[in-house]
C-alpha cells in the first residue's frame, strides 16, 4: 500500500471540517436558546479556522495562517464574546417562536442543502481543495439567509449574517487554493467585525425605543 499524498489527506480533512460546519449550521437552525446559538456559531467558526490552518499547513501558504489567526481571534473569541455580553445585558436568552417550526425549517434546509449540492456539482472540477466544499459553502449561505428571515430577534439575524459570511469564506477557500488575496480577506474581515458592532448598537437602540428586539414590530408607528 502506497501512502496517501498530502493533497489527498488535506482534501479529506477539509471536506470533513466543512461537513462539520454544515452540521453546526443545521443545529443552529433548530436551537432556540440564544447563548447556545452563539456557542454553536463559535464552534462553526473554529472549524473554518481549522480549514484555513490545514490549507496553510499542507500547501505551505504562510499568509493563510494569518487568515486562520484572524478568524480565530475575531470569530471564535471576540464576536461570540461580544454577542454573549450583549445577550446578557439585554437579559433574554430565549428566542420566541420562529416563523416556521423546527421540523419544517429542517426539511426546508435539507432541501436547500440538496439544491446547493446539485448546483455545485458541475463545478467540482474547478475546485482544487476538498471534494464538494463548494456545495457545502453554498448551502451555508442559503441556510444562513433562511435563518435570517426565519428568526425575528435582531440578534439572531446578526448571527445568521455571520454564518452567511462563514459560508462565503468557505467558498473562497474552496475555489482558490490559497484563499482570496490577503487584502480582500482583511477587508471582509474588518467589514464583518464593524458590521456586527454597529448592528449590536442598533439592536440595543431598537430594544430601547420599542421595548422589544422583535423586528416584526418595527413596522408599527411609534408616537
Amino acid at each position: 500500500m502506497n501512502g496517501p499524498t498530502p493533497a489527498e489527506i488535506s482534501a479529506q480533512l477539509i471536506t470533513f471540517c466543512a461537513a462539520g460546519m454544515l452540521v453546526f449550521q443545521l443545529l443552529l437552525i433548530v436551537q432556540r436558546m440564544l447563548l447556545t446559538n452563539i456557542r454553536l456559531f463559535a464552534l462553526q467558526s473554529f472549524l473554518l479556522t481549522s480549514i484555513a490552518g490545514i490549507i496553510a499547513y499542507f500547501h505551505n501558504a504562510t499568509h493563510v495562517y494569518l487568515v486562520a489567526a484572524l478568524t480565530l481571534i475575531g470569530k471564535v473569541v471576540f464576536l461570540p464574546w461580544l454577542l454573549d455580553r450583549q445577550v446578557r445585558r439585554i437579559g433574554i436568552s430565549q428566542e420566541i417562536e420562529p416563523l416556521l417550526n423546527a421540523p419544517a425549517s429542517m426539511l426546508l434546509c435539507g432541501g436547500l442543502t440538496l439544491l446547493s449540492y446539485i448546483v455545485a456539482r458541475p463545478f467540482t472540477a474547478l475546485e482544487r481543495l476538498g471534494n464538494n466544499t463548494l456545495g457545502i459553502a453554498m448551502s451555508l449561505v442559503l441556510t444562513g439567509f433562511f435563518l435570517m428571515f426565519n428568526r425575528r430577534k435582531a440578534i439572531t439575524q446578526v448571527l445568521a449574517l455571520l454564518t452567511v459570511e462563514n459560508g462565503v469564506m468557505l467558498a473562497a477557500v474552496a475555489l482558490t487554493t490559497y484563499g482570496m488575496p490577503l487584502v480582500v480577506e482583511l477587508g471582509i474581515f474588518f467589514d464583518v467585525v464593524v458590521a456586527v458592532m454597529v448592528l449590536g448598537i442598533l439592536v440595543y437602540r431598537i430594544r430601547d425605543s420599542f421595548a422589544s428586539m422583535d423586528t416584526s414590530k418595527l413596522n408599527q408607528l411609534k408616537g
Binding site: 489527498e8 489527506i9 479529506q12 471536506t15 466543512a18 461537513a19 462539520g20 454544515l22 452540521v23
Partner: peptide, 10 residues
C-alpha cells in the same frame, strides 16, 4: 486519515 469521512461526521 481515511476515518475523517465527511459523510460519517453527519
Amino acid at each position: 486519515w481515511k476515518l475523517f469521512n465527511p459523510t460519517h461526521a453527519m
